[in-house]
Simulated scan of single mutants.
Amino acid sequence: MEGKNPIQVADRLFQALELLADQGPLGLMELSTALKLNKSTAHRIVSSLQYMGYVKQNSDNAKYELTFKIVDLSSKVMRKVDVVNIVRPYLRRLMELSGETVHFVERDGTDAVYIDKVECYRNSVQMVSRIGSRIPLYRSGVGKAMAAAMNLEEVEELWNNSEIVRVTPYTITNYDELLHELGEIRQRGYALDNEENEPGVRCVAAALDQAGGGVKYAFSISAPVNRMDNDRVRELAGYVLDTKEQMSREFR
């Protein structure tokens, strides 16, 4: 939903929650400055969150920090995402085959949301992604895999509603270039993220086929570029396509 939040206090409460989640413990003046609120208003906001159990104040430094109640809340949400329980065995097998980290995402508007991640701890370089974080469809392997299953009108709507930002030298910021890329994805069956969202990281991705049309889920193998040359991409693409066929049967 776009536009101004009709309940201003709710807007401020969640801004404070998101700020503490992003920055970690903060003092009242730090909160006031970051939220662009006067000190008394910021104090009322954080006191409300404290009353509800989402925030606590450290007695040693007087800084405010999130409690584990927010973690419990997110865990309850994730436990209801049955699709994760369905695909997890396939993701784990893909991780074991590839020796790399595997992600599973769900589309939410113009973004993909990470709803599962199977890390390969054999590698010293770990992916910075986390469950619950978002990534724009237009500049991600998983996103382009899902966009390739859309018709032209849907792709145009996706592009027009996305904030197009060149975050790396390789980010696609031209609509015609995106259309060309989607055409290639349709031909080969899988998508690539060639350092388009994060420098030094490449991904091989595919979307799941679902009964009734429409694409809601996708998955990827991610690795640093030094472990993802073109020969390695072709090898991993084989694993991805096999896994796509196996998992898609669960959704038909």
Rank of each mutant, 00 (worst) to 15 (best):
A191Q: 02
L152I: 10
N161R: 13
Y170P: 01
A149K: 14
I172S: 08
I185K: 01
Y175F: 15
I164G: 02
N161K: 13
E163V: 13
E198F: 11
I185W: 04
R188W: 08
V155F: 02
G183S: 14
V142K: 00
N160I: 03
E177Y: 04
K144C: 02
Y170I: 00
E157H: 12
N160F: 06
Y190Q: 03
E153M: 09
E156F: 04
E157W: 09
A148E: 05
E181C: 12
H180V: 13
T171D: 11
I172N: 06
T168W: 11
P199A: 09
E177N: 11
E181D: 15
E163T: 14
T168K: 10
I164P: 01
W159K: 04
E184L: 14
G183A: 05
N197W: 03
I185S: 01
G141F: 00
G189M: 07
M146S: 05
R186M: 12
E154N: 07
D193N: 13
Y175C: 06
G200M: 11
V167T: 14
E181R: 14
Y170Q: 15
N160V: 02
M146D: 03
I164F: 00
W159D: 02
L182G: 04
A191F: 01
E154Q: 15
I172R: 07
R166H: 09
E184T: 13
L192N: 02
N194H: 06
N194Q: 09
A145K: 03
A145L: 09
L182S: 05
L182H: 05
G143W: 02
G183D: 14
V165C: 06
A191G: 05
E195G: 01
I164Y: 01
Y170K: 15
I185E: 01
E184Y: 09
M146T: 11
V142Y: 00
L178T: 07
G183E: 13
K144F: 04
G141P: 02
E156M: 08
L182M: 09
E181M: 06
G189I: 11
I185G: 02
N197C: 04
T173S: 14
R188Y: 10
N161F: 05
Y175S: 08
L158K: 03
N161Y: 07
I172E: 08
E184S: 12
